[in-house]
């Protein structure tokens, strides 16, 4: 599967709330960050958790978010970041 996003590209995490096991923390949903790197392709944990095959594999990225974009009133420095591993099907190009 050809990766849809490239390093440096801004992406937004879907505002989705599936009632299943998933590996997307609530605190980044709907937030915009930058693709830090492509990690490879991995089985879908939302299916693996229920004895599924999790195929086809999905590209997995590290997305870098600015802390001040994640937490209103963040009390650190504006350069501070959080990198989160996110599967491609949770991401869309930033508007």
């Amino acid at each position: 599967m050809k990766p849809r996003f490239r390093t440096g590209q801004p992406v937004t995490v879907l505002q989705a709330w599936p009632r299943t096991h998933c590996r997307t923390p609530f605190y980044c949903r709907g937030k915009t960050g930058i693709i830090e790197r492509l990690c490879g392709a991995f089985r879908n944990p939302q299916e693996l958790a229920y004895s599924g095959e999790g195929l086809p594999k999905s590209p997995l990225y590290r997305v870098r978010f600015r802390q001040q974009d994640l937490w209103p009133g963040y009390r650190g420095k504006s350069e501070d970041t959080v990198d989160i591993e996110l599967y491609e099907f949770w991401l869309e190009p930033a508007a």
Partner: peptide, 10 residues
């Protein structure tokens, strides 16, 4: 800069 890494997947 503080870089936090959230180990969420693989």
């Amino acid at each position: 800069a503080v870089r936090v890494h959230d180990s969420t997947a693989d």
